[in-house]
């Protein structure tokens, strides 16, 4: 491949190859504080390939390929190449990672204890983690929480935060340093997207695990409410939110059972980021 970058994020190392320079240049700049050792052995390879014989030049169009691929993934416009690279890395983790139980969740840490938030896209879990990361919590990740298979700890995976639509302005108001934002990607399949570089301490401490203390199922846009969630329901929802639960077999079963029986779980409804942050502070201080 003509352009390449090797990138360490949390416990994983990615090798990204591209036929075009632009996505690699953007990645390299946004991930400047992360390990970029070209000689490192990568866990996964991601390839940004032309979607057809002429598509390197003519209406350039990117196909996301690599070690693990989705057979029918739609190609993306080259101007969304950065997003394609991020999606490619997520896909490798989702389909390939076996060293932790991988849960589709965001997480933040305080005093060595982790708050894990999971839910459908649109629940606000990603934006909430980014917001708390600017307000005294350590940001651990907005997409995947990695559960340790032997001690149950939560490991960070602090890739770039992927802000969508209204969350972009909300975080622009929160983060003073405009250099932490990537280019605005308009009209992607998920609307407008802008990437945000996590705070410096999140990157510096990206190999530092925390003990899970609270699991939340946030829901954005619904009047304030807090409800307990039963263990059976939590177990079911987390098996669905995990991309490698089945692949890990008995180890995954034991890790998830442990998490569900040890970590209290609540569903919270909220109408604004400030409201959610206040609710979370309250719930957090009420923990034993």
């Amino acid at each position: 491949m003509r352009h390449a970058l090797t990138l360490g994020i949390g416990p994983a190392t990615f090798r990204i190859g591209s036929e075009w320079g632009q996505p690699i240049d953007q990645l390299s700049a946004l991930y400047a504080a992360y390990p970029q050792d070209a000689a490192a052995v990568a866990d996964y390879t991601v390839r940004l390939e032309p979607a057809g014989p002429l598509r390197r030049w003519w209406r350039p169009s990117v196909r996301i390929a690599g070690d693990h691929m989705l057979p029918d993934a739609a190609p993306m416009a080259l101007r969304h190449g950065l997003l394609a690279a991020e999606m490619g890395m997520n896909l490798q983790m989702a389909l390939g990672w076996r060293r932790h139980l991988l849960i589709h969740a965001s997480s933040v840490e305080k005093d060595g204890r982790a708050l894990v938030m999971t839910g459908e896209s649109g629940s606000g879990k990603s934006t909430l983690a980014a917001l708390l990361g600017e307000r005294g919590w350590r940001f651990m990740g907005d997409e995947f929480a990695l559960l340790d298979l032997s001690d149950g700890g939560v490991h960070p995976f602090p890739r770039l935060v992927s802000l969508k639509n209204a969350a972009i302005e909300a975080m622009r108001a929160e983060v003073g340093d405009s250099a932490r934002f990537g280019p605005l990607l308009e009209d992607t399949p998920k609307g407008a997207i802008r990437h945000l570089v996590p705070p410096a301490d999140a990157i510096a401490r990206m190999r530092e695990a925390a003990v899970p203390a609270l699991l939340l199922f946030p829901r954005y846009g619904v009047a304030r409410d807090v409800r307990p969630v039963g263990q059976g329901e939590v177990f079911m929802r987390l098996t669905q939110a995990s991309t490698n639960y089945v692949a890990l077999g008995e180890e995954g079963f034991e890790a998830l059972h442990r998490f569900v029986t040890e970590v209290p779980a609540l569903a919270i409804d909220y109408e604004s980021g400030d409201e959610a942050a206040a609710m979370i502070d309250e719930l957090w201080s009420a923990l034993p």
Partner: peptide, 17 residues
């Protein structure tokens, strides 16, 4: 090298499954 043996261990786990 260590990173290679981690990748190979994952692959063995997959094959066993």
């Amino acid at each position: 090298p260590d990173p290679v043996s981690a990748i190979l261990a994952d692959a063995q786990l997959d094959a066993e499954r």
